[in-house]
């Protein structure tokens, strides 16, 4: 029992499923088709089209992260004070997460489409049709919809662990409700906020599905460019090079999480 050899399958899997593939990614990204070392795939990020896609990705995912944070924090604050049936209410907020990601995104397509449900309702009440789909707004909204639980969950985890006696102590010492939030709850929920930010920002930054489904293929994010290099464009080295650039941003946010969430409170 508890033999060290029990780690063997795990180690094999980590090496074969994570480390070697990542090494392959770097190998492809740092070589050209003939196999000679080059930096051109990395530097390709500075080509106008790619740079624009990266910029858009950063912009949209930042917007999505901010919106998720602003929407989630009040919910987590309210949930903190819910006494009856708290589990049920948290469950209601998380249930959509269990519906297939593609189905959820597709649902928004159905709602936003030119001949879709929202426009159907608009014309039914006599309003002109609006152009909703294939806009940056639609993409950001789709991101928010898909990733909101990733923000809510860690913040709720951390906030619900703050003992009531701490907020009571703050009231007792003269703090107003707003001061209790800004001086006690907010600083104590930093680990949750940081994990939430990372858990929303990374998938939003790298998505190609949402931009494809709600952007109609007209708005290209960095994820779309990479995906196309691998599927349509067939320049794997270039795709791998751009992936490496993207990973730099992921690493930065991982470092961010490691700095602020030392005990891993947000993830658990």
């Amino acid at each position: 029992m508890n033999k060290r050899s029990f780690t063997a399958p795990y180690i094999i899997w980590i090496i074969g499923g994570t480390l070697i593939p990542l090494a392959m990614m770097f190998y492809y990204g740092l070589t050209d088709e003939s196999g000679t070392w080059t930096l051109q795939n990395i530097l390709a990020i500075f080509e106008p089209g790619n740079l624009r896609a990266l910029w858009k990705s950063l912009l949209y995912s930042a917007a999505c992260t901010v919106v998720c944070l602003l929407l989630s924090y009040p919910i987590a604050l309210i949930l903190r004070n819910v006494k009856r049936a708290k589990g049920v209410i948290v469950f209601i907020f998380l249930l959509p997460m269990w519906v297939n990601f593609l189905l959820r995104t597709m649902a928004w397509q159905v709602l936003l489409e030119k001949g879709g449900v929202i426009n159907g309702i608009l014309s039914w009440i006599g309003l002109p049709k609006a152009r909703l789909i294939n806009t940056p707004g639609a993409i950001i909204m789709g991101m928010v919809y898909d990733f909101l639980p990733f923000m809510l969950l860690p913040i709720n985890n951390v906030l619900s662990k703050v003992p009531n006696s701490l907020t009571e102590a703050a009231y007792d010492l003269g703090a107003s409700k707003a001061q209790v939030i800004t001086k006690v709850l907010l600083p104590l929920s930093v680990p949750g906020i940081v994990s939430g930010i990372t858990m929303v920002f990374v998938p939003a930054l790298t998505t190609f599905v949402i931009s494809n489904m709600l952007g109609g293929g007209k708005i290209l994010l960095i994820g779309n460019i990479i995906e196309q290099e691998f599927t349509v464009g067939d320049n794997w080295n270039l795709g791998a090079g751009l992936s490496i650039v993207m990973m730099i941003f992921i690493l930065v946010s991982m470092a961010f999480i490691a700095k602020f969430d030392k005990k891993g409170e947000g993830l658990a």
């Binding site: 003992p163 006696s165 701490l166 102590a169 703050a170 009231y171 007792d172 003269g174 006690v184």
Partner: peptide
């Protein structure tokens, strides 16, 4: 009157010091 407007203070059972 809410606690923040009462001229009294409390020492809590588990101290309730702000860890931050």
């Amino acid at each position: 009157t809410p606690p923040n407007h009462r001229n009294l203070n409390t020492v809590f059972q588990k101290y309730a010091l702000f860890p931050n």
